[in-house]
């Protein structure tokens, strides 16, 4: 009886330990270590880019009221090498606008649409969203809709 009890107790303790053998963070999902962001139009023409992620290379981005603009956003690392995040299911591009009633972002796979909804001026910024947090937040970019 005692041996059986002892064996059961030891097995219970071992089971407690073994159930704890799965790693709390099973998959390592690396951050996107972007240094800058490049914004291009549908023809691949560079519209603007950040400089050391402190400022944009253009004063403002001009949109025409009612004319959506198809853009691609590409992160680059500190060497200027473009980072391909298209296969990363845990990474997406997000968008902030100070006046959301003027301009909206419609994400698509590999690109997105900037939809202007009225004339005016606002500021927008792009985020590289990784799981539940931002890996990259661009400076504010002035957008003028005429």
């Amino acid at each position: 009886m005692m041996r059986r009890l002892s064996a059961m107790a030891v097995c219970a303790l071992m089971a407690c330990g073994l159930t704890a053998c799965d790693h709390p963070i099973g998959i390592v999902s690396a951050h996107i270590e972007a240094a800058d962001l490049v914004v291009r139009d549908s023809a691949g023409v560079e519209l603007t880019r950040t400089s050391f992620n402190r400022r944009w290379m253009v004063d403002s981005l001009v949109l025409r009221d009612g004319a959506s603009l198809r853009v691609t956003i590409t992160p680059v690392d500190f060497r200027g090498t473009e980072l391909d995040v298209s296969e990363r299911r845990d990474v997406s591009y997000r968008f902030d606008a100070e006046r959301a009633e003027l301009v909206q972002w419609e994400p698509q796979r590999g690109f997105g649409w900037l939809h202007p909804f009225g004339r005016g001026e606002t500021r927008v910024r792009f985020l590289i969203w990784h799981g539940d947090h931002a890996d990259f937040v661009s400076p504010w970019l002035r957008v003028v809709i005429r």
Binding site: H23, P24, I25, V28, H130, D132, H133
Partner: peptide, 13 residues
């Protein structure tokens, strides 16, 4: 085997 995740982590796995 140390791993970390989240927006405010600086620790690499």
């Amino acid at each position: 085997d140390l791993r970390a995740e989240g927006s405010f982590t600086g620790t690499r796995p």
